[in-house]
Design a protein around this nucleic acid. Structure first.
Lengths: 121, 121, 121, 121
DNA sequence: GTGGTCTAGACCACT
DNA sequence: GTGGTCTAGACCACC
């Protein structure tokens, strides 16, 4: 079994397990990982990334807490039946962060027009 | 001597000294801390925040490296004479992050119009 | 041949074979599965639950040990002639667990009256 | 620094880290561990229980997820400022479990009076 | 000293 | 084979 490429940055302050979480979250949001799809087993994922299985386990635990994946012992790990809420949450969070940043910029005296112009098309 | 409120999040992965740096950088960019203004001494800042003076020292060292503040022996610590470049850098970084986030959202299938609408005015 | 619905929770820490045991124990105690009734064969049960026959085998072995079911070679598997002791044991265990829980609640400062009220009728 | 005794059962199917969670949850619900109290550090707790620090870490992570404790890096671990909701949740769960058990018993043909009688006063 | 992360590897139960 | 737990111990940043 294979899967989409997960990219890790070992220099980042973001821990490996969280990068794995973010990557999978992103692929689910992008629709690349579809509901009920089986994903790599902990051992496979660990081998493919060159990290320790425990690190992958921690990532999977967090994803399970976020209801993005479901784990069936001795069967494997699967994308949840319903990923819509999780995806919606992620989008909401992103929109909010953009709002905050724009808010900060306007407080610094940058006009909305200027922001839009600088962001480009 | 007092100063604008610096907010610390002890749960954050961002170290305290860096949060202090970010806070002061922000207040300078916002024009709340103006050029040549004297800011709290290391000891005062440490006391007001309830953190170790070494932590504040580290923050001030970094701010000095970024030429945002200047320490004059026996006189105290002051916002630099020229904060324009530092502010410009910060704005550039913010704009870039917004760009990235918008890029991610469009990849998730959210149209530019929808993003604009959801951000509001 | 069919039978009452057996519900499995793959997320539970309780192993599948034990969940099967508990389900059948419960149906016997409830009188839904009556004495001398024939139940599904290992293969049928396995197929109907979508689990491995070995898992069902293990459950049936345990039930047989508890004298709740009896297997007659080439004939099939049946609820035992006498299920009263098994049922009585199960009730005793339940009562005990309720006692323990009430005990914990009172230690937390919840009065007997409050517990009774909150449980309802 | 010391703290209330935490009892572990190594034979139990309930993992060590979860037993630690349950113990601390219980002490908080009982009011033995009060809000803002500092609890044993990961290393101290590990030493006092004779388990690995990672096991304690996992327990503390879960408790933090349940907002029962708060961790301040380099400072230590503390009972949350507000434990009322957590305690209320725990009580609600207990009540619910009692309800379920009573429900099962009545379905087995045990009358409410009989249950009350057997539980005792 | 504190917590946070990660590795390496073991053992277990379940299927 | 799978996931679940646990140990032992390392290294790190922060304070």
């Amino acid at each position: 079994m294979s899967g989409p490429l997960i990219s890790l940055d070992y220099q980042s302050r973001v821990p490996i397990y969280e990068q794995i979480v973010n990557n999978i979250e992103k692929y689910v949001a992008l629709g690349i990982l579809k509901e009920k799809t089986q994903i790599l087993s902990i051992r496979e994922m660990a081998a493919s990334l060159g990290v320790n299985p425990n690190t992958v386990k921690k990532a999977y635990d967090i994803l399970e807490g976020k209801r993005i994946i479901t784990t069936i012992s001795t069967k494997g790990t699967f994308i949840s039946d319903d990923t819509k809420t999780a995806t919606k949450d992620k989008i909401d969070r992103e929109i909010n962060e953009i709002k905050n940043k724009i808010c900060e910029l306007t407080k610094m005296g940058i006009s909305k027009e200027e922001i839009i112009e600088r962001i480009g098309k």
